[in-house]
Simulated assay, not measured.
Amino acid sequence: MSEWLDAYDDVRERRSDFEVSEDERRRSRIGTFKKKALHASNKFTHSLKKRGKRKVDYRFPSVSIEDVRDAKEENAVCELRQRLLERNLLPSRHDDYHTLLRFLKARDLNVEKTIPMWEEMLNWRKEFGADTILQDFDFEELEEVLQFYPQGYHGVDREGRPVYIERLGQANPNKLMRITTIDRYLKYHVQEFERALHEKFPACSVAAKKRICTTTTILDVQGLGIKNFTRTAASLLAAMAKIDNSYYPETLHRMFIVNAGPGFKKMLWPAAQKFLDAKTIAKIQVLDPKSLGKLHEVIDPSQLPDFLGGSCTCSDEGGCLRSNKGPWSDPEVMKVSHASSVIFFFYDMFFILVSFI
């Protein structure tokens, strides 16, 4: 661990040097860390040339977490990171391999196109207050909101990803806006994204023993009709789609729209696609009521609520969408998760520093 701490100190020194002058930053690149990392750098570079992917194992006292990395993606992350540092666009809290990779994937690994997207995200986070929203925002009307917009995380899929469920057919936009506002609901939406990134994904990674960075989402549209698509609903949907696509890209692995009848497929689904980008649409599978069984191919029935063809009711928790069922609710998993986040940080710092050599 002392070596990782030394590496972290060198990271801080690099950033301090960058703020002072470009010349000093260049000199820091050939400083004390180079002597420690040169051998590792040679091995790392050789491994990228030799194989298309690398499998990294993060080992903790009770679990080993696998992280498979693609050589082309790693090179793109290295380039993007250096370009962002040169522009002073890489705050330490966002200096994370998988965060950088998500934005690169949203722009097909094109660094030039990723930089303005990243800068827009930083400006938005500052204006919106996203960095502190987990501590600063209290969505006190949540219980009432759930009555008119049932939703929540429940369990994991067969690969360990968190499952997020919305019952859109039971949503009532008019009554929802009597309880909250669009601005407050969007703050809650962002807060849940931050909670997924900082709590749910790390906990699922520990439970699955491999790096988890995306979700499986289920939208239940049974009962959905024109009545649900008010002007308020359209405004809310458009605002959430903007946030999802621009500021939290590539966090969706797959989506199922279930209980979709002929009316939804002919009228509502074409209208909804106007709010989605092509990449997101490609991840969506629309299932009619007779095809719910296909969910079992990717989600064990014990992890599915009974209203989606599963065996879970969470009767002691007030229902599945209020139970918050998942690895993130296990105290023992969360202990390991908090420890693993530190190790992930030090490994990524090592990877990043080696890339400078």
Rank of each mutant, 00 (worst) to 15 (best):
K265F: 05
K266H: 11
K266F: 14
M267L: 15
L268D: 01
L268I: 14
W269V: 01
P270I: 06
P270W: 07
F275M: 10
D277W: 07
D277N: 15
A278P: 01
K279P: 04
K279L: 10
K279A: 12
K279G: 01
T280E: 03
T280Q: 04
I281V: 14
I284H: 00
V286S: 03
L287R: 06
K290N: 11
K290T: 12
K290Y: 09
G293N: 12
G293D: 14
L295I: 11
L295G: 01
L295M: 07
E297S: 12
V298R: 06
D300K: 11
P301K: 09
Q303T: 04
P305V: 06
D306I: 10
F307G: 02
F307I: 05
G309W: 03
S311N: 12
S311W: 06
T313S: 14
T313A: 10
C314M: 10
D316N: 11
E317V: 04
E317M: 11
G318D: 03
G319T: 10
G319S: 02
G319H: 08
C320T: 00
L321Q: 01
L321K: 00
L321T: 02
R322Q: 10
N324T: 10
K325L: 10
G326W: 01
P327D: 12
W328H: 02
W328T: 01
S329M: 12
S329V: 06
S329F: 05
P331T: 09
P331S: 04
P331Y: 10
E332Y: 08
V333M: 12
M334Y: 03
K335T: 14
V336A: 15
S337D: 07
H338F: 07
A339Q: 14
A339E: 15
S340L: 09
I343V: 14
I343P: 03
F344L: 09
F344I: 11
F345D: 14
F346L: 15
F346N: 13
Y347D: 14
D348G: 11
F350D: 07
